[in-house]
């Protein structure tokens, strides 16, 4: 085999291997949240009324808006891959920026939501919180813990997409070699996927 041929084969292998590795990593992320979903379901089962009351205190509209925002951002990141496949660097970068902006809007909404709860004293340690029924307290604990951890993932995902943009601009990501961008997008879809479950569990079930 000539040298260039070996290189092409190895390069192809590298690409497949890194995508494979990304999928494995996503498994671990799912299991990380899986532990929390398990805790949620057990406590929900044990405290059904309290959880229903807790759920009715969350603002369904902000939750729904955030769901739409994240779904749209998944669309834009998927489109950015099509753009790079068609060698349209400019469009790819624009779409990636749209994704990041949507992520920021999501976080701003989250900020308003949390700061409202902060004002009414609905967080661990306050007098209001201590007087809640035990189950409702658990509901809000899980709410903060799970949406908080999800929020951290949104931030990480947005930073990752920032690196993708840098690499597209540097010409390291091209229509021939866009596995890094694909991995970034996969991660972003995971962030989206987890929210799809968080939204009904906390906001919709009353």
């Amino acid at each position: 085999m000539s040298d260039t041929a070996t290189h092409i084969v190895e390069h192809h292998l590298d690409e497949q291997a890194s995508k494979f590795g990304m999928w494995l990593f996503l498994f671990t992320e799912l299991l990380l949240f899986g532990g929390l979903f398990l805790v949620y379901s057990i406590y929900r089962y044990l405290n059904q009324d309290d959880f229903a009351r807790g759920g009715s205190e969350l603002d369904m509209y902000i939750g729904a808006i955030n769901t739409v925002i994240l779904l749209t951002s998944s669309l834009s990141v998927a489109m950015s891959i099509t753009a790079i496949q068609k060698n349209n660097k400019r469009m790819a970068v624009i779409l990636l920026w749209i994704t990041i902006v949507l992520a920021l809007v999501f976080l701003v909404n989250k900020y308003f939501e949390w700061s409202h709860k902060y004002h009414v004293g609905l967080y661990p340690g306050t007098e209001t919180f201590r007087t809640l029924p035990a189950g409702e307290g658990l509901f809000f604990l899980l709410y903060y813990f799970m949406t908080g951890l999800h929020g951290v993932h949104v931030i990480i995902g947005a930073i990752l997409l920032g690196f993708v943009i840098e690499r597209v601009l540097d010409g390291k990501i091209t229509s021939e070699n866009y596995v890094f961008q694909e991995n970034g997008a996969l991660y972003w879809h995971l962030v989206d996927l987890i929210w799809i479950y968080l939204f009904p569990l906390f906001y919709l079930i009353h």
Partner: peptide, 30 residues
């Protein structure tokens, strides 16, 4: 790969419980 994340999140819950005084596993807090 498949088992470690579960203990990861569990230990994180212990840490949160210690820092924030939240009652995920402490029976006196529910």
């Amino acid at each position: 790969l498949l088992a470690t994340p579960v203990v990861g999140i569990t230990l994180l819950m212990i840490a949160a419980e210690r820092y924030l005084g939240i009652g995920l596993f402490d029976p006196s807090l529910g």
